[in-house]
């Protein structure tokens, strides 16, 4: 009988030190969950199997306590409330990130990205699956390398600008609800075409939907 138990780890690191956390089953894509209060989060895809966490306390000389809890391929990271972190994850990891006061940046992660920010910008590059993003007071900038044709997405913001770049051959049903601010879209809107619905909801910021330049 295989032994599967939740692994709870507490680690204190100085600035620049890296903590490693593992998924129970590295052969399947894992989920990374992280909620942060006052610090920016950067997540990058890389070719390894483990999750590498470099936590930096906001005061340069302190230690930062990082807690990780893993259960059935779901890894939850709890950072020191006043620290930023750079995290490397296997490419196919799905992300669930929330930040109150800090920006969120994601690069080259190909799993689903579910990201929310109250007072910080959201920046996603190299997306390849669904993205669901919300920002209350910050901008949302997303660039897709490719889009999963079966998955709905949503981008919403109260006071921030939403700017998304899709591949040129995108076939999806784009829907925009917005009150104020400008709207620009390189594709046709509200076509009711077959494919997932991609919703844009903005109150006070503009919405900009662009077609990637052909290489």
């Amino acid at each position: 009988m295989s032994r599967i138990f939740a692994l709870l780890c507490l680690a204190a690191s100085l600035q620049g030190e890296t903590i490693t956390a593992a998924f129970s089953d590295p052969s399947r894509p894992g989920i990374l969950k992280l909620r942060q209060s006052n610090g920016s989060i950067t997540v990058r895809g890389y070719s390894g199997k483990d999750v590498l966490i470099e936590a930096n306390p906001n005061n340069k000389h302190g230690k930062s306590i990082t807690r990780t809890q893993e259960d059935g391929n779901r890894l939850t990271i709890t950072l020191d409330p006043n620290s930023s972190a750079t995290i490397q994850v296997p490419f196919q990891t799905a992300l669930q990130l929330q930040s109150s006061n800090g920006s969120i940046r994601v690069e080259k992660v190909q799993g689903e990205i579910d990201v929310q920010s109250s007072n910080g910008s959201i920046d996603v590059r190299g997306a390849a699956s669904a993205v669901v993003a919300h920002s209350t007071n910050g901008s949302i900038n997303v660039a897709f390398d490719k889009v999963d044709a079966r998955r709905p997405m949503s981008f919403s913001s109260m006071n921030g600008k939403i700017d998304v770049i899709f591949p040129a051959d995108l076939k999806a049903n784009l829907k925009v609800q917005h009150q104020r601010g400008s709207l620009h879209c390189d594709f046709d809107l509200n076509t009711n075409a077959p494919g997932p619905e991609i919703q844009f909801k903005s109150y006070n910021g503009g919405v900009n939907i662009r077609r990637a330049q052909q290489k």
């Binding site: 989920i31 779901r74 799905a94 669930q96 689903e112 579910d114 699956s129 669904a130 669901v132 998955r151 709905p152 997405m153 949503s154 997932p196 619905e197």
Partner: peptide, 12 residues
């Protein structure tokens, strides 16, 4: 479901 995109699909 865990995936927000799946929950959006459910709503649709």
């Amino acid at each position: 479901q865990q995936s927000a995109s799946d929950r959006l699909k459910g709503i649709s």
